[in-house]
Every structure is written in C-alpha cells, then in structure tokens.
Computed example of a mutant assay.
Amino acid sequence: MSFDRALDLIEVAIDAGRIPGAVLGAIEGGERRLAARGLAARVPAEEPMREGTVFDLASLTKVIFTTERILHHARLGHIDLDSPLTAVIPDLRQYDMTAWERQVTFRQCLGHQTPFPAVEPIYTYGSDPATLRAFVLQREWRRLAVPVYSDINYILLGIVLERIEGQGIRAMDPGPGFTFAPAAETCAPTEICSWRGRLIRGEVHDENCHALGGSGHAGLFGTGAAVLDFAQRLLERGPGLIGEALSDTRTHGWERRHPGWPGGDACSSGTIGHTGFTGTGLWLDFDTRRAWTLLTNRVHPTRHVESGIGDLRRQVGDALNGV
C-alpha cells in the first residue's frame, strides 16, 4: 500500500485549487493510517484541515446508516427484502392500487434496481417535512426505461425506517462516531447555498434531506476515524449481503468493482465502495482485507467548478492498491 503516494496525489489536487483539502485513511493487514492535507475552509477565512475534521458524508449515509439498518430489520424478520415497500408503507400511491410504485421491493431499492428518476428537487415543492413526505409517497413518478442510481430509493427506505421504528431519522442512533447534528465549528463547510442564502456548515448540504428534516439518502456526519472504524467492523464481519451481486455494478447498497468505477482498477474483484456528492468516499476490499476512505469537501465554496474528484478517487485507489 503506497499511502504516501496517495497523499502526493491529493496534494497535487490541492495545489491546483481543485479541492480545498482532504482526509485520507486506510487499513491494511492490521495497520491503520490517517492523514489530513490542505484547508477545511477557504471562506470566510482559511482554516486548516485536521484529522478530526467532521465531514458531511452525503450519500455515504446510504451505506453506513440506511443499508445497515434495513438489513438489520430484515435479519430480525421485520421485513422480507423481496416484499414490496407497501408491506410497511401501505399508503404508497394509495389512490392507485395498480401503480407500479406499489410493486417496488426493499431489495430493488437497496440495489437501485427500480425505474425511479435519479433525483428530484423535492425541496422546491414546499417547506413542511410531513407534506413533502406525503408528496414523495403520492407522486406519480416518472418511470425510466432503465434503472439508474436514484436518491428516491433511499428516501423511501428512510421512510420505511421511520415507520418501523416510530421516530424520525434524526432521532435514531446513527452508530459509533457518527451524528446527524454536529457542532458547526468542528465541520468542514460545504457550499454557499443559493437556496438557503448562506454558507452551509454543520447542517446537511443536500437540499432534499434538509427540507425533509432528515432522510435515508443523506445527512450523516463523521470523521475519517469514524469511517475507518466502520470499515474495520465490516471487514471483520465479512461481506454477507453487502457483497452479494444484484447487478453488474451493484450489491445491497454498495457499488461493485467494475471498469472505470471510482475505486480504481487495481483492487480485487471482491471490492465494494460508495461515494458522496460533497466529495466523500469509502471502499472495502474483502479479498485483501484492505479499506480506504477519501474525504473532501470538494463543493466548498461552490459545486459549480470542475474539482476532478472522479480522477482523484481512481488515482488514490490505484496508489493504495500498489499501482
């Protein structure tokens, strides 16, 4: 594992102004390394990135929190993964009992094997979380011809968790080292949000998650150490369902290694991973018992620039896997 080579690549990206800074963490053969580079904040004043900086993990929420919790309820027999969501949400598209949305299963949502659109600006339809949940459940969704990775799958799974557990997402325990409500001063800021009219720091960057008051697709915060701790627990537990292929590119929740994916080409076929829009990522190679996380706030202070995060992720993955 060339951890130092990976850090060099990160420093090149920082020096070029593509990202403010990053925290890199890796586990291999019982050895664990963690390092910070660059800035946590550029505006309103520069602040250094630290190993303990808290990140908006964005879509890593899907695998660290929601997937784990849904599979936990499946193991307990609370849900059958091959049953439709209506087993828990009977009011889904309740005004049309023949609606295709009523046939979608838990497993299909976990593997992004549904016809839902990739994303929808739900936050533009209102400001009341309960009303927006009703909108998600009763909307006649545009049906795609081919399944794509969709936030809607995990917004629905978040509603499933709320129905089963009888509380909102933000009231649930997100697991050791993670939070839905961090102290702002500990966080790497994300974007100057045109909708909210301020720099986002210590609150979720994702507009839909913010408007919903918590959701299954985003909203989790954590440090590099917390993400590595989670990865270590998964390596010790073994792949299980999260390693089981549902398609050429997807497992239960996670992305499988495939050509051109964000984890690079040098990892084994037993590798899974996931990324987050804010600039985060986590990968686990069960064959070599190696894991790595690259956490950046590449959307700071704006998403409307080319950060090169895709190339950087692949380069870091290949460096850590010996290329």
Rank of each mutant, 00 (worst) to 15 (best):
E51A: 11
I10N: 00
I89C: 05
H300G: 11
W261T: 03
P147M: 12
Y125H: 15
F178V: 07
I164T: 11
G238I: 00
H274F: 09
A58T: 10
G126F: 02
G240V: 00
E306Q: 12
A188K: 05
V160S: 10
F135G: 01
G158I: 01
L144K: 14
G30P: 00
E203I: 15
E101P: 01
P189K: 05
G260C: 12
L320G: 01
R18C: 07
L312A: 11
L234H: 12
G52F: 01
S215A: 15
G264A: 10
A188M: 06
G279R: 04
L282V: 05
P189E: 05
T86P: 13
R257W: 14
R93L: 07
L76T: 14
R142H: 14
F178W: 06
L137S: 05
A183H: 13
G177R: 03
L320R: 02
W254M: 03
Q94S: 15
R289F: 11
I192F: 12
G263W: 00
N297M: 14
D151P: 06
T302M: 05
Q103T: 15
T275N: 06
P182H: 09
D151E: 07
N208L: 01
D82S: 14
P182Y: 05
P174V: 10
Y123I: 02
G224H: 07
V146K: 15
I164Q: 10
A13V: 00
R233G: 15
I272F: 11
R250L: 08
A231T: 01
P182M: 02
V299I: 13
G111F: 04
V23L: 09
P239E: 08
V160N: 06
G281P: 00
A145H: 12
